[in-house]
């Protein structure tokens, strides 16, 4: 029985490229990875939004209305529903004049019990040091 920890770092803004959404869909796939592993082995996924990547977390995205696409917001809510550790860099929110009021903090309507954590960058670097592998998107 062992655990491999993966850290997904999202740096790019939403909708300009596919990267942020791929980060979330890959992170979410950690929930079904057991089919490839031995009993008891697991892969965990922590997701951190930094730099312009924090813009992915804005509330009330209109991706479905404008592009007929599922929004990054929905993917973040699905991540919370699946108990992924979702972190957002506080300094980068401040830099963009954003606060917890502007971003997806929970997914109560989905039945999620965990919430987004707005944390200082030092906490994100701590996570980055603790994981086995880092993936930058």
């Amino acid at each position: 029985m062992s655990t491999t920890k993966l850290g997904f770092i999202v740096q790019r803004p939403p909708y300009k490229s596919e990267n942020p959404k791929l980060a979330l869909t890959h992170a979410i796939s950690s929930q079904s990875v057991e089919v490839y592993l031995n009993d008891g082995d697991i892969v965990t996924a922590d997701v951190a939004f930094i730099g312009d990547g924090v813009l992915n977390c804005l509330k009330n995205q209109k991706a479905m209305e404008k592009y007929a696409l599922s929004s990054t917001e929905t993917h973040i809510k699905n991540s919370l529903l699946l108990d992924l550790n979702v972190m957002v860099c506080k300094e980068d929110l401040d830099r963009l004049g954003l606060s917890e009021n502007d971003i997806v903090m929970d997914a109560e309507e989905f039945g999620a019990e965990v919430t987004t954590k707005v944390v200082p960058f030092s906490e994100i670097t701590k996570m980055m040091e603790e994981v086995n592998h880092l993936l930058f998107f």
Binding site: T4, L6, H26, S29, S30, S32, V33, V35, Y36, L37, D41, V43, A45, N132, H133
Partner: peptide
């Protein structure tokens, strides 16, 4: 999930 399993 294949990718994550490989990373395991």
């Amino acid at each position: 999930d294949w990718y994550l399993a490989s990373a395991f």
